[in-house]
Design a protein around this nucleic acid. Structure first.
Length: 557
RNA sequence: AGCCCCGUGGUGUAGCGGUUAUCAUGGGAGACUCUGGAUCUCUCGACACCAGUUCGAAUCUGGUCGGGGCUGCCA
């Protein structure tokens, strides 16, 4: 697939270049995306997907999807399907290379036996607590396990019995014999296998011992012939172990490369915290349009190409950083501006009667499908003398700088007529409607005498309109870094992150828009049809507003 | 405290011994406009610090300071 071009070269690609130049892996480039099937993917995972698949594409290599399913008690089949769906939606194809770490359990077992034979692994009978206590701490070396010097034969026998199910969980464990006084804690005889009498989503009850991440990951990479094993920074301290294990085995040895995970202001990107928001009901689910999950963003109307663009422009590095939410928004708007079809909708309707047009007028106006894309052509929008406009577009006593409608003022009804407000209808103090007079010669929107009209507002013809519920979303948190400070991040949830508007009026063509298409309501922003829509009830999500200079000016006053 | 990693405009990012220190985003000003959108122009703004090597250092070396990670039978 021909994806968007990257803007800069990063340190990961520099390393790949160096590998190619030295011929370390021949001329092969083979990466992998290794999710654990225990939750839904979010934009942070997308950074890894785009990196791994992107590099494979650029270098004419391949990228696998491999589920890191080594912990049966946390993982579920349902997540496998959702993860694959999300990867596909993002625009990537693993072809026939869908793997599971659990595919390699037999090989992993054989290799463990091999290490035992070579004296590099042993069965430990200690409890979790004993092992923890004996590990030492950051400044104190660990102490040796009393079982560390068992004979190879005894280790072999015990390990076989672990596999056979003779021991309870926690009773025995297989450990790599590395160095209990190593300054890197990961090297203090790390656990390779633990007993878990649990049913695995893939292997069922075939196993009751399961490999740890450290024992499974590098070896799986090796089996698949991976060349660059790209992971996040927190695995940096695991690299010595990754290398140690592969070196003892003497098998294909990929290069682990670590990059900084993604952080975005005004949101959180951690499975645990996202889960908490779902479970506490602060959002409607993992696909709530406010969630930074891929499912949430899809439902919100973010196009996958915009996400790819965003991820490629923020780059990849080793510095921990937080990307401004505005940067994401820019990519969304930029993509949508170029691609989205334009429609009209009124979120907060104010009735307008055109006094000098026939009450039964049934006209249509030409409208550009997308002014940014002349090739998209034009279409017709129904027009009548009975309209609604946005309440915000009228002020009885407008401040300077306001160039929308006001008593006696003329504005352009977009693509229709120049209209002057001749009367304000009210119920008590509340304005309930307007009467306008239209310049008959301005049909289409241009003044017959060429006079300039500064304001242009949008409208919808009431007899043709469809009613809709529109959901307006805003950032999930009120502070840039919800994790900062010692308060609970949940207390920073933005109470206005969802505002529901009912009784909105939209042009009838909107009902023909399918799922997955994000369109523009002129002057308002980008929107999409929500799956909650039923036959009689149209539900629309606001993906993002248009930049609103007027709002900014007002806000700064 | 031990080990590992990282410090370039507000936010990201390029830079690989000699550049007016890149680009984007963001802020400000203006032009244009049938979306107060888009577009265009101008503008603001950074090499953490101190030594050293060198004719020359954001780039190399050492130190200081600052940030992050690591003490699951999680990944």
């Amino acid at each position: 697939m021909a994806h968007d071009e990257r803007m800069t070269k990063d340190f990961v690609r520099d390393i790949v270049d160096a590998h190619l130049a030295s011929g370390r892996f021949g001329q092969r480039v083979h990466t992998r995306f290794p999710p654990e099937p225990n939750g839904y993917l979010h934009i942070g995972h997308a950074k890894s997907i785009v990196l791994n698949f992107g590099i494979a594409e650029e270098y004419g290599g391949k990228c696998n999807v491999r589920f890191d399913d080594t912990n049966p008690v946390r993982e579920e089949e349902e997540f496998v399907d959702s993860i694959l769906e999300d990867v596909r939606w993002l625009g990537y194809d693993w072809e026939d290379r869908l793997f599971y770490a659990s595919d390699y359990f037999d090989q992993l077992y054989e290799w463990a036996v091999d290490l035992i034979r070579k004296g590099w692994a042993y069965v430990d009978d200690q409890t979790v607590d004993e092992i923890r206590a004996q590990r030492g701490d950051l400044t104190t070396p660990g102490t040796l396990s009393p079982f560390r010097d068992r004979s190879v034969d005894e280790n072999l026998d015990l390990f076989a019995r672990m596999r056979a199910g003779e021991f309870a969980e926690g009773e025995r464990v297989l450990r790599a014999k590395v160095d209990m006084s190593h300054p890197n804690m990961n090297m203090r005889d790390p656990i390779m296998y633990r007993v878990l009498h649990a049913t695995h989503h893939n292997t069922g009850d075939r196993w009751c011992i399961y490999p740890s991440y450290d024992w499974a990951h590098g070896q799986s990479d090796s089996i698949e012939g991976i060349t660059q094993s790209i992971c996040t920074l927190e695995f940096e301290n695991h690299r010595p172990l990754y290398d140690w294990l592969l070196d003892r085995l003497g098998v294909h040895h990929p290069q682990q490369i670590e990059f900084a995970r993604l952080n975005i202001s005004y949101t959180v990107l951690s499975k645990r915290r996202l889960r908490q928001m779902v479970e506490d009901g602060l959002v409607s689910g993992w696909d709530d349009p406010r969630m930074p999950t891929l499912r949430g963003m899809r439902r919100r109307g973010y196009p996958p190409a915009a996400l790819r663009d965003f991820l490629s422009r923020i780059g990849v590095a080793k510095v921990n950083s937080t990307i401004a939410f505005e940067t994401l928004e820019h990519s969304i708007r930029d993509h949508l501006n170029r691609t989205a079809r334009r429609f009209m909708g009124v979120l907060d309707p104010l009735p307008v009667t055109i006094e000098n047009l026939p009450a039964d007028l049934d006209d249509t106006m030409d409208f550009a499908v997308n002014p940014e894309d002349p090739g998209a052509g034009t279409r017709a929008i129904p027009f009548s003398a009975d309209l609604v406009i946005e309440r915000d577009d009228f002020m009885e006593d407008p401040p300077k700088g306001f160039h929308r409608l006001a008593p006696g003022r003329e504005v352009r009804l977009r693509n229709a007529y120049l209209a002057t407000c001749t009367e304000v209808v009210r119920d008590g103090s509340e304005v309930t409607g307007l009467v306008c007079r239209v310049d008959p010669g301005s049909r289409g929107g241009n003044a017959p005498d060429g006079r300039r009209v500064k304001g242009t507002i949008h409208w919808v013809s009431v007899p043709h309109a469809v009613e809709a519920e529109v959901r307006l979303f805003d950032r999930l948190f009120t502070v840039e870094d919800p994790m900062a400070g010692d308060g609970d991040f949940m207390s920073y949830i933005n109470p206005d992150s969802l505002v529901v508007r009912k009784g909105c009026k939209v042009e009838p063509a909107v009902t023909g828009i399918g799922p997955g298409e994000t369109f523009q309501f002129e002057r308002l922003g980008y929107f999409c049809v929500d799956p909650d829509t039923t036959d009689g009830h149209l539900v629309i999500n606001r993906t993002i507003t248009l930049r609103d200079t007027w709002a900014r000016i007002r806000g700064e006053r």
